[in-house]
Amino acid sequence: MQPASPVVTFVLRGAALFVVWWALTLGEVSGLGFGAVVAVLVAWLSLRLFPPSGFRLRPLGLLLFFGYFLSRSVVAGLDVARRLLSPALPVHPGEIILTLRLPEGSPRWLLANTLSLMPGTLSALLEGDQLTLHCLDTRDPVERDVRETERQVGRVFGLTFDHARGAAL
């Protein structure tokens, strides 16, 4: 995949940084000029440190992923709370190792980090395409959930997988 052009990346990052500055200073007008300078400098520095990679964010995929992430993290909190409040403490902790289909870089990183906030999973180790997950209950269909999350993460970057291995679609 072609990396995004540096100019587009620079403008997008600069604009995002400026919005963050505006919010953090509570919209203080006197600080906006200084903020604009800082945003431009940091955007330039970020281009040198993290040049645009081959992955482009898809706005629709990102929006859908955001909704998925929010709903699943609510389910995650309720799930752990339900187990904790149940007198029998129904947990069956264990580890599973999965081979990821996402490519190296941002997609894998995003998946590993979001899985820690998803129901029943906690990423313990990411080595190459091997992800070790600690599961609160190994009797749950953990792999199915992870594959669905993987598909959602792929959509953020405009990636699709062959569904030979039974991914839900």
């Binding site: 440190l49 993290f50 990679s53 992955f55 964010l57 870089g105 941002s106 894998r108 990183w109 590993a112 990411l126 080595e127 190459g128």
Partner: peptide, 9 residues
């Protein structure tokens, strides 16, 4: 060749 996961977008 194993490197710690780094984040760059």
């Amino acid at each position: 060749g194993d490197q710690p996961e780094t984040h760059h977008d």
